Structure formats: structure tokens, C-alpha cells
Amino acid sequence: MAFKNKLPIPGVVQVLNPFKVKKQRIMNFNPAEGVTTRKPAAETKITVFDYNISLCSELVLNKIEETFKYANAPQLSWINIDGIRKEEVHAVCEQFIIHPLLEEDILSVGQRAKMDEINDRMFCLLPMIYFNSETSSIDLEQVSIVLGRNFVISFQEDPARDVFDPVRAKLLITGSRIRNGGADYLCYSLLDVIIDNYFIVMDKLGERIEMMEDLVQHQPNTRTLARINYLRRQVFLFKRAIAPVRELVNGFLKSESDLLDDKVTKYYKDVYDHIIQCNDLADNYRDMVLNLQEMYHTQLNLKMNEIMKVLAVVTTLMAPPTLLAGIYGMNFHNMPELASTNGYYYTLGGMGILLVLMIMIFRKRGWF
């Protein structure tokens, strides 16, 4: 018998036979077997903000070699590379004296958030998270940030989107705090806007959880359970992605590098508070989704109990008429009522009176 849903469930593959579906494994915890390098990007976009207190220029570069002059430039520079290619990343790392281990991290895929400090370069890698409203799913993009004396280099996977527009807007404002700060403050600003976007994604997940709570109350069926399981996977994916970011920010707070000014440390402390709050909210959402599953089973049991209650009442009400029908359906000759002219009507009346009496008793006892 064919199996199919009338309405599509976001993220759930619609198939004709659910018993022949082979579940795809999307998690691989063995680094030796996992894919550690990425495919080269089809498109690369290079933008540079070269600025000081009084001036700021935004440039779009065509070749990676044009960024080399900013390695020792007197002004501060933010080099943002959208789309990662191995040759270009190697050339940048070689020119800006970035350690090969950090280069491997930039080129890797599926890395957990981390922070390293090698050869007077501070490096951090963390997820940039988006919420896909069409599929109600979490999209992850790996972002790598390298902090130097007078530059910050950011590597992104997707040239089409990011969350850095607030930072770009502040850089174009004369006298803004980011223009008066150093490269460490720029690095903080990038981390801050990434982590602030986590709260936006969590708001979207919270809306889906509230919607599922209403759905569980009114439609506790297998389709609703599939949606709950899908939402649970998205919440767990979000939690797993942001959990290591706390240690990443804590690494900046504990660092004694000369690249970080003591005055900027308090800003990293603020980011640390934000990521702690974000982790706490993610834990709450995870518990709420687990409670949704328990609520679903509770509602399902209540629905089943109501069905069994109705069936039990109907069976009980039909028992006396069935008994009478069975008695007078016996083929004995010596039954006085068989000779009665109105026996048929007396029997039906007796059945009706018994039904009414039983209904009155059940209602008085509050059984239905």
C-alpha cells in the first residue's frame, strides 16, 4: 500500500515506502574518515576596508595578490575573502606569515569552534549561523578570522551572504568607536556581530517551538511527531555548533598576547557574557523540544483513552439489549412470552428503558 503525506514536511524526504528508506548518516565523528579539505569555490569576492581615524576606503579587489600590500601597511585593514580556494589561501598565509597549521584549519570543513595563537598571529574559527525560513532548518557557514598587528583577515565560504553589514556601516562613520580602535577591536566587532546573530536564529527556533506546542495540542498524529523530531535535530545542531564558541572567546580573555589591548579586553568579556547566555537559551530550547515529545505522547495517550472510553460505553450500553435478544432468540417451545401478542414491543421497550437508565447512571457518576 502506498504511503505518502498530503502536505510536505520541511526537511523530511517524502517516499512511497517508508520501510525501505535507508537513513543517511550526516554525522561522522572519526576525523580519519571524514572529509578534511573543501572543494574550491566557484566564485571569490575580495573586499578591503583600509582605514584610520579620519579616513576609510572600501575597495573590491580582483586578484588575491592585490592584498599583499596590506601586510605592512601603516593603516588598519580588514581583508574579507568570500569563497575559499586552496591556492589563494596559501598565498595569503605565506604573505601575511600565517602558520601552516592555521592554514589547514582555514581549508578544513566541519571544524568545531576553536582559537589558536601562533607566531604573533591570533586565529579563531567559528560557525556563522543562518535560519532558512523555507525549510525551517539551520544553515552553518564556517568563518575563519586572523588577527595581526595592523590587519584582520576573514575567510568565508559563501560569497552571497554574511552578517557583517553592521560592522561595514560603522567603519564608514567618521569618529565611530571602531574607527578609533585597533585591529583587536575590529576582531571583537566581527565576533560580536556573529554571536548576536545567534540570538536572531534562536528567536526563529523559539517561534517554531511555540507553533509546535499548539500543533501537539490539536493534532497529535504521526505527521506532528515527524515535525517534532525534525525540530529537535535542528535545535541539537544549533547547540552543538555554538557550544565550543564559549571556549573560543574565553581564549581571548586568557591570552596575554601583545595584539590585545587591555582596554579592549572588557569588550571581549561582554561577548563572553553573550555566548554564555546563548548557550543557556539553547539548553532551554533543547529541554522544551524534549518536553514536546513527552507532550505528544501524553496527548496521544489521552486521545486513545477517550477512544477506549467511548468504545467501552457503547459496548456496555449494548450489553443488556444483546442479552435480551439472545434470550428470546433461543429455540425453546416452552417460552410463555412467545405467545404474547405484544411481546415484541415489550421487549424493545424494555431494551430502551435499560439504555436510558444506564445513561442516567453513567452521567450521574460523571463517566461521560
Rank of each mutant, 00 (worst) to 15 (best):
P8D: 06
I9V: 15
P10V: 04
G11Q: 02
G11T: 00
Q14I: 06
Q14K: 09
V15H: 02
V21G: 03
G34W: 06
T44E: 13
I46K: 03
F49W: 06
D50T: 05
N52V: 09
S54Y: 09
C56L: 00
S57D: 15
E58F: 02
L61R: 06
I64S: 05
K69Q: 11
A71Y: 09
N72W: 03
L76Q: 06
I79T: 04
I79G: 04
I79V: 08
D82Y: 10
D82M: 07
R85M: 01
R85C: 09
R85I: 08
A91H: 12
I98A: 04
I98M: 00
H99F: 11
L102H: 01
E104M: 01
I106G: 12
G110V: 12
A113I: 14
K114Q: 11
D120M: 08
R121W: 01
F123I: 12
L126G: 05
S133E: 14
S133I: 07
S133M: 08
T135L: 02
S136R: 10
S137T: 08
L140A: 04
V143R: 07
S144K: 11
I145Q: 06
R149V: 08
S154Q: 05
D158N: 15
F164C: 03
V167N: 04
R168V: 01
R179M: 00
N180Q: 12
G181W: 00
G181A: 02
G182T: 02
D184Q: 02
D192L: 11
I195M: 00
N197E: 11
Y198C: 01
V201H: 07
M202R: 05
K204D: 07
L205D: 02
L205H: 05
G206E: 09
M211W: 11
M211D: 15
M212A: 15
E213V: 06
L215W: 10
Q219Y: 15
L225M: 15
R232P: 06
R233L: 00
R233S: 11
V235P: 08
L237A: 04
F238V: 08
A241M: 03
A243C: 05
N250L: 13
G251M: 06
L253E: 12
S257L: 09
L260E: 01
T265Y: 00
K266P: 05
Y267A: 03
Y272P: 10
D273R: 09
H274I: 04
N279T: 10
L281W: 08
L281V: 10
A282Y: 00
N284K: 06
N284C: 04
N284Q: 08
D287H: 09
V289C: 13
L292V: 12
E294K: 11
E294A: 14
L300H: 14
K303P: 11
N305P: 15
L311R: 13
A312F: 13
V314Y: 06
A325I: 04
M330C: 10
N331E: 12
H333T: 11
N334D: 14
Y346F: 15
L348S: 03
L348T: 01
G349D: 03
G352E: 05
L354K: 05
L355D: 03
V356A: 15
M358F: 13
R365H: 09
G366I: 00
W367S: 07
W367P: 01
F368D: 00
